[in-house]
Amino acid sequence: MSSSTPNAPSRDQWIEIAARTGLTAKGIVYSLVGILTFMAAFEMGTGDDKGGKSQALEWIEEQPFGQVLLGLIAIGLLCYSVWRLVEAFLDTEDKGSDAKGLVVRSRYVFSGLMYAASTFYAAKLLFGSGSDDGSDTRETVAQKLLQQPYGQWLVGAVALGVMAVGVYQAYYSLSGKHRKKIQKTKLDNKVKETLLASGKVGYIARGIVWLLIGYLFLRAALQSDSSEAGGSDSAFSFLEQAWGSWVLAIVALGLVCYGIFSFVRARYQPVNT
């Protein structure tokens, strides 16, 4: 008798499962980031901290059955990270090995590593050792870079790279490139356009956050002070101080839109394997 399991998922099926699981987890995290930040903007019982990814994961842990929920989210984020790295190294999107293709695939690597870091933080929370938030991590990175020869230039290069990500997010939205994620679905046209509009708003909001994080790194470079660097929570605090609670609330709602669009992608986006 054969020991193989005929109905076991193939490699291609595992890649698709990882992609859809990862996109669902990403949608949950971004929706929570937006909701918690919106509530914090108007002091609606969430404390002074704005809702970065680390705060969203901490909030999940504090809920009933939080350890179970956080474990599931950690698995989902790991799936997303693995999927992005598969896209990069196996070139499942057929981007090629020319200069343009390598730039796109390097973006997949960057995304995979970012979500691997979020997975690691969720795991630290699960095992009771999560103490440093995203801002502290970025301050540590800035501090170590500043200690190197030409440290200010290195931090400045990181700042420009992060800001470039923000600009690309806005371009991705305004150019309509996000439409291809669900363009071929058989949804009602009005529903599809509404969902695409949520994605458009979401990518712009995400771009704003990346630009602000990059700006904070740029300040750290110019002042040679690692404490100026920070993550999304620091970016939210800076945004509120500079432009007020209403602007912060609008960006927060944009991040909720991004989370919703991630759910839509999890359901309808074709996954190349």
Rank of each mutant, 00 (worst) to 15 (best):
S262A: 09
I15M: 07
K186N: 11
F236I: 07
L212G: 06
K184E: 09
L187G: 04
W14N: 01
Q169C: 12
Y171K: 12
L174T: 13
G199M: 07
V201I: 14
S262F: 10
I15V: 15
A74G: 04
V256H: 02
S262M: 08
R219Q: 11
K50M: 14
T140Y: 11
T37R: 11
Q152A: 11
S245N: 03
Q269P: 00
P6G: 06
R107P: 00
D188Q: 11
G254S: 10
S111C: 05
I260L: 10
R219T: 12
V68R: 00
G112M: 12
T119W: 12
A197P: 04
K100I: 12
K144H: 14
T140Q: 09
D225V: 05
V271Y: 00
Y258D: 06
Y172I: 13
S111N: 08
Y258K: 10
D94V: 13
L218F: 05
V264Y: 00
W153F: 02
G47K: 00
W14K: 05
Y203V: 07
T21S: 10
C257R: 02
S135I: 01
G71E: 01
F120Y: 13
A164N: 06
S4L: 11
D188S: 08
E240Y: 10
F89Y: 15
C79L: 04
L146K: 01
V29W: 10
M1P: 14
V162W: 12
S111K: 15
G66F: 02
L222M: 06
M114I: 14
Y30W: 15
E62S: 10
G207F: 04
F120D: 01
Y30E: 13
R107W: 06
L154A: 15
Q13F: 10
L69A: 06
L90N: 09
A221K: 02
I35C: 09
Y215R: 05
Y30N: 13
A123S: 14
S10E: 10
D49V: 03
I182H: 01
S129T: 14
L211F: 09
A249L: 09
A116R: 03
N272E: 14
S111F: 14
M1K: 13
S226V: 00
R11A: 15
K184Y: 06
Y268W: 14
F263H: 06
V68M: 04
L126K: 11
Y121E: 08
I17C: 04
V191S: 07
V191F: 09
Q152F: 01
L125Y: 07
R107Y: 13
Q148G: 02
P149S: 06
Y150R: 14
G161N: 04
T185K: 01
F65R: 08
W210G: 04
S97R: 07
